[in-house]
Amino acid sequence: MKGGAQGWVRKIGATGLSLGVCLWWAACAGEQPKGSMHPTPQQVRGNADRAFEKLKQEEQIRVGNGEAMPR
């Protein structure tokens, strides 16, 4: 017999590894893609309000420091 017990161990190991990779691949392929969540109008409005308030604060800081307003 060529290889003896060591050959069988390698064959069983390679088969197990191949089977494991195939199962992993199948599990990943079976996942449903997650759709992007669309923000609600309230979330959009809240984000816009926060951004506007931040912009007003930055403008007040610039005016307070005597910097010219960019045009």
Rank of each mutant, 00 (worst) to 15 (best):
R50T: 08
T40M: 09
R45I: 06
A5C: 04
P70S: 00
R50C: 09
E59L: 12
C28S: 12
K34L: 12
A51P: 04
K56S: 06
V44S: 09
W8D: 09
D49Y: 07
E31Y: 08
E59A: 13
G4K: 03
L55S: 09
A68E: 10
T15E: 07
R10P: 01
P33R: 05
G4D: 01
N47I: 05
R71Y: 04
E59R: 08
G30D: 15
R45N: 07
M37P: 09
N47Y: 06
G20C: 07
Q6K: 09
E53I: 06
G35Y: 05
W24R: 06
D49P: 05
G64T: 04
V9S: 05
A29I: 03
M1F: 11
G30M: 12
K2T: 10
L17G: 05
K34V: 15
D49G: 11
E53W: 10
P70E: 03
R10E: 09
N65A: 13
M69W: 09
E53F: 14
Q60R: 15
P39H: 01
R71K: 11
E67G: 02
L17K: 04
R45Q: 13
E53K: 11
R50G: 08
D49W: 08
G7F: 04
G4H: 02
P41W: 00
N65V: 03
L55G: 09
E53N: 14
Q42P: 03
M1S: 12
P70W: 00
Q57P: 02
A27M: 12
K56Q: 13
E31K: 14
W25Y: 14
A5M: 10
N47C: 08
V63K: 07
L23E: 01
C22W: 15
N47H: 09
P39R: 00
T15M: 12
G64L: 02
V21I: 15
V63Y: 10
R50L: 06
N47R: 14
C22K: 12
E67N: 07
Q32K: 13
W25V: 13
V63L: 14
M37I: 14
A26E: 11
G3D: 01
P39D: 02
C22Q: 15
K56G: 05
E67F: 02
Q57C: 05
G13N: 04
C28Y: 06
I12R: 03
L19A: 13
M1W: 11
A27N: 06
I61V: 10
T40Q: 07
G64Y: 02
A68K: 15
M37N: 14
F52A: 12
A26D: 12
L17R: 09
M37T: 15
G66M: 01
A27K: 03
R71W: 04
G7I: 03
G3F: 03
E58K: 13
T40C: 03
P39C: 02
N47S: 14
P33K: 08
T15R: 07
Q42R: 10
A51D: 09
E31H: 07
P39I: 00
